[in-house]
Simulated scan of single mutants.
Amino acid sequence: MNTLHFTAESISNGIVERDFTVNGVPGVLWSPESSADRAPLILMGHGGGNHKKHPAMSGRAQRLVHGCGFHVAVLDAPGHGDRPRTEHDEQEIAALFAARAACEPEGPIVVRYNDHLAKLAVPEYHALLDALQELPEIGIDGPVGFWGINMGTAIGVPFVAAEPRITAAVFGQHWPDVLAGYAKQITIPIEFDLQWDDEHISREEGLALFDAFASKEKSLHVNSGKHKELPRFEADSAVRFFARHLGSAVTMSA
């Protein structure tokens, strides 16, 4: 039994923001302020070093709620946001900073650490989905998507590979080393973002992960620029992608 406990609520600009814990893991749920409809749900994963309410998360949520009437939920990843860091977290972060200072490749450390975090986070996202589908405004039969870039992809790809309730997903900007095997198990529609001049992930590595997805419908979005220069308009593209594949809010029966 998963325990969902709402801890705070605020309303701004037509969006209800509710903080919660599910089995003790902190998260946030954004929903339309005034709607008598049941609507699709988008689960999101934040990037490394960020948290559930990082501007990238709240900005994407605002687009999805205002543009589509969707519900959007994010968990703090292990060792991020309101969750304490373990000794293992501190060691991996120190190794990453040391590699960066020495101008050595960061990829092997990030891949290893993100794989560790994903093994912890994937069961938490399964529990989150179970709990949120108990809410009448979401329901057990409504469409669900996943949106995660960078570390959000490291968590999202193994989660989606094991979760048949996800029917569309947006990923991008990660190495194929661990994730390609999971991607081969995914057949739902995929939109994938890649930065052509990424200083950490080579073009060949990015393309290899995209190619690994078994989806009959998958779209590759390539933009010039470095790792942290993903254009903002790709967020609008992702919203259109989810609207196309998940539909829109539907009136709930009495």
Rank of each mutant, 00 (worst) to 15 (best):
L75C: 06
F70M: 02
E137I: 12
A131E: 01
G152W: 06
V110D: 05
E90R: 15
N114I: 03
H88C: 10
R100D: 08
Q91P: 03
D115I: 05
P84H: 09
Q133S: 07
D76K: 08
A131T: 08
A95Y: 00
V74W: 03
F146P: 02
A77Q: 11
E104P: 08
G79S: 08
D89R: 01
G148L: 04
P78R: 12
L96M: 14
C103S: 15
H88W: 10
I93H: 04
R85E: 14
F146C: 06
E124N: 12
V122D: 12
G81E: 05
A99C: 10
E92Y: 09
H116L: 14
L129S: 02
G139P: 04
A101I: 06
D89V: 02
L132K: 04
I140E: 15
R100S: 10
P105S: 05
P123V: 03
A121V: 01
E104F: 08
P78D: 12
L120W: 12
A131F: 03
C68Q: 13
A98P: 01
D76E: 09
A131D: 01
L129Y: 04
G145T: 04
A95Q: 07
P108D: 05
P123F: 09
E106L: 15
A118E: 01
Y125R: 05
I138F: 14
D76T: 07
T86W: 09
R83K: 08
I138S: 00
Y125Q: 11
A95L: 10
V74L: 09
G81N: 02
A98G: 06
E124H: 11
A101G: 11
C103V: 11
A73L: 01
V122W: 10
W147R: 00
G139V: 09
P105N: 06
I109G: 11
V144R: 00
E104I: 01
L132P: 00
I140C: 12
C103E: 15
A77V: 00
V122I: 11
L120E: 15
I140D: 14
V72N: 05
C103W: 11
E134C: 07
M151F: 05
R83Y: 12
P136A: 12
L132E: 01
G79Q: 01
D89L: 07
N114L: 11
P105Q: 02
L120Y: 10
E87P: 05
G148W: 07
A101K: 15
L129N: 05
H80K: 06
I109P: 05
A73S: 13
T153L: 07
P108F: 00
E87H: 10
G152R: 04
I138T: 03
H126G: 10
A121Y: 10
A99Y: 02
G152M: 07
L117Y: 10
A118G: 10
D82E: 15
G69Y: 11
E106W: 06
M151E: 11
R85M: 14
H116C: 11
E124C: 02
P78K: 05
G148N: 09
L120D: 12
G81T: 04
V110L: 15
G139I: 05
I149Q: 03
P143M: 02
E87Q: 14
E137W: 15
R83G: 02
V144P: 00
A127S: 15
R83V: 01
P143E: 08
E92I: 09
T86C: 10
P143A: 03
P84A: 12
A95P: 02
Q133I: 07
E104C: 07
D130A: 13
P136L: 06
